[in-house]
Design a protein around this nucleic acid. Structure first.
Length: 579
RNA sequence: GCCGAGGUAGCUCAGUUGGUGGAGCAUCCCCAUGGUAAGGGGAAGGACACGAGUUCGAGUCUCGUCCUCGGCUCCA
């Protein structure tokens, strides 16, 4: 069976659901009801609220209709007639008004007529009544515009067979188990506290260590690639954001201004939403020669953005986050080569973290922008050149660029195939113009450099959220904040456990002695839950032979090993950054 | 920000028609000194998110605020 058939089934289910809702709410006004990935939805303007308890009732009615073997019939009617039929359906009416052509197409099913171009199944008997499920009720703006009324949306999932539905529901359950917010609590990595504020992360010892390990790794890669580390403050006078254009274009996403009294005057200060102006000022501190370029400034810069309350989500959407940011200042001739290097570096880093699949988008000029059309075209071409040079497949996201330039976004796919936007690489001719940046060229003339803004992991917070879900909390050895637990069998083995721990630490392996008065079994269980890569049990036999009994995560007891052999095994994994 | 659902111990949750709040895990103490996924016993732990209101009496009913969750919109 083809994909097309399942789409017809999903779309038809949306219609059947609409017919059912009409029975329950005769005065309902209909929005639209398309097929989507894994299912369908329909938007309704209801006279009274719909509760989740009602969903099984609606499901039951849908099944009844399906079993009646009802036909879907296509009808082509004139616009005038359509306007008459849908005169009490304002949303449908609005759609008809915008349709071109004299005839509009409708689908009749049961006694329910819907404006629709189809296609649909011929009869409800093509639907397996056990292979769909209504999943949730949500609010959704009419036509996706927040100025429009909010409709009630019912989501459903549907497949051709009952097994596919069950598999899908199981996969959803698995994804819930991997949810970084759940694992963040279970593994004691971080929390968000009411007393601090929404979207602001408190990193616990294990989470902070994980973050530091990631930061150290990427920073070392950047330094190797010729970047220079800089460091800048969290606040600045607001005037710098006037120059950069942020107060004009992104005021709504910035935290409110602080009014500071200085020299008898009130000077407004602003929490930084990005690092670029700071790096620009470091560049501008002296007169630059073409010989110095490219200059690549990098910073693990923490920025604060006032995201709307409803958009916050665990670590993946927050109000304060650390970017692995960098700004590259280069000549026009160097641009292509620099972009290629950035892309190569990105791929290398993601590979090390275990990500293999990406979605790459080239985002072009948005409605609100600064600069000339010519410079936008040049910047976009440079990005295209780099993508093609590195042989990366990409799609174009029209109008999704930043106000100062086009960009490449890389979304990484986790082990469940979900895509998360992390990397952003932006070419910018406009801030160099706004800040009047320059360098002296070979002929002693002033020229304007080009800037590349790039954050490869994007936000450390989001990246760690993705990483937690990707590994379901079972981090590879080099990332695991606690790599080895040493479990002494009895009190008299504690000393040996501590000596072993010390040796492991001296060989840069993060280790902990679990010497609480509990049974070995309990500590093993705890270690498994905490997803510790290695659990070492030590008792009389191990002391005698200077060895450890090794339990490897996911493999169970792998037997005894000389301590120096175990250290060697760990170091081997660590230097390759493999599990 | 918008629509909807929630907020009870550190965590996961129960709490009947309104009548002074419970369990498991975690914590602390005691016993047990252990060999690969929970040894046993005891204790402590709570303005029931916050603020008003209705009532003789509110975890429970009403309203407001904050926060969380599912979506929508947004994401430099």
């Amino acid at each position: 069976m083809s994909n097309k058939k399942i789409e017809k089934i999903r779309h038809s289910l949306a219609h059947i659901m609409a017919a059912t809702v009409k029975e329950l709410y005769p005065r309902v006004k209909f929005g639209i009801g398309p097929a989507i990935e894994n299912g369908f939805y329909y938007d309704f303007d209801l006279t009274s609220p719909l509760f989740p308890e009602n969903l099984p009732k609606i499901e039951k009615k849908i099944r009844e209709l399906i079993r009646k073997d009802l036909k879907f019939e296509k009808e082509s009617i004139s616009r005038t007639e359509a306007k008459k039929i849908f005169k009490n359906q304002p949303y449908k009416f609005e759609l008809i008004k915008e349709l071109k052509g004299l005839q509009v197409s409708c689908f009749k099913f049961h006694d329910f007529v819907d404006l629709c171009k189809g296609p649909h199944i011929k009869s409800t008997k093509e639907i397996n009544p056990k292979a769909f499920k209504l999943t949730k009720i949500a609010g959704a703006y009419w036509r996706g515009d927040e100025k429009n009324p909010m409709l009630t949306r019912i989501y459903g999932v549907a497949f051709e067979t009952e097994k596919e539905l069950k598999d899908y529901l199981k996969q959803v359950e698995e994804a819930e188990q991997r949810d970084h917010r759940v694992l963040g609590e279970k593994l004691d990595l971080f929390h968000i506290d009411k007393a601090i504020g929404p979207g602001l992360i408190l990193w616990h010892p294990k989470g902070a260590l994980l973050k530091k390990i990631i930061e150290d790794y990427v920073l070392s890669e950047y330094l190797k690639a010729g970047y220079q580390l800089v460091n800048t403050p969290h606040i600045a006078k607001i005037s710098i954001w006037d120059t950069s254009g942020h107060t004009k274009f992104y005021k709504d996403s910035m935290f409110p201004v602080m009014q500071l009294k200085e020299m008898g005057k009130v000077i407004p200060y602003q929490l930084k939403p990005m690092n670029c102006p700071f790096h620009i000022l470091i560049y501008q501190k002296e007169i630059r020669s073409y010989r110095q370029l490219p200059i690549r400034y990098t910073e693990l810069g923490t920025v604060y953005r006032y995201e709307k309350s409803g958009t916050l989500h665990g670590l993946t959407r927050v109000r304060g986050f650390t970017q692995d940011d960098a700004h590259i200042f280069c000549t026009p001739e160097q641009l292509g080569k620099e972009l290629v290097s950035v892309l190569k570096l990105t791929l290398k880093i993601f590979k090390t973290f275990g990500f293999k699949e990406f979605e790459i988008c080239l985002s072009t000029r948005p409605k609100k922008y600064v600069g000339t059309l010519k410079s936008w075209q040049k910047a976009t071409n440079a990005l295209k050149y780099a993508l093609e040079k590195v042989k990366l497949a990409y799609q174009i996201d029209p109008g999704e660029g930043v106000f100062y330039g086009p960009k490449i976004d890389i979304k990484i796919k986790d082990s469940l195939g979900r895509a998360w936007q992390c990397t952003t690489i932006q070419v910018d001719f406009n801030l160099p113009e706004g800040f009047n940046l320059s360098y002296i060229d070979k002929k002693g003339k002033k020229k304007q450099p080009i800037m590349i803004h790039r954050a490869l992991l994007g936000s450390l917070e989001r990246f760690i959220g993705v990483l937690i879900e990707h590994y379901a909390g079972a981090f590879p050895l080099w990332l695991a904040p606690e790599q080895t637990w040493i479990i002494p069998v009895g009190t008299r083995h504690k000393k040996y456990a501590r000596e072993t721990c010390k040796q492991l630490y001296e060989n840069s392996s993060r280790s902990i002695v679990k010497d609480a008065n509990e049974t070995v079994s309990k500590k093993i269980r705890e270690g498994e839950i905490q997803k510790i890569p290695y659990l070492l049990v030590v008792g009389d036999k191990e002391i005698k032979r200077k060895s450890v009994r090794v339990r490897q995560r996911g493999k169970g007891d792998i037997g005894k090993m000389k301590l120096n052999k175990f250290i060697e095994k760990c170091q081997n994994c660590l230097c390759k950054r493999k599990n």
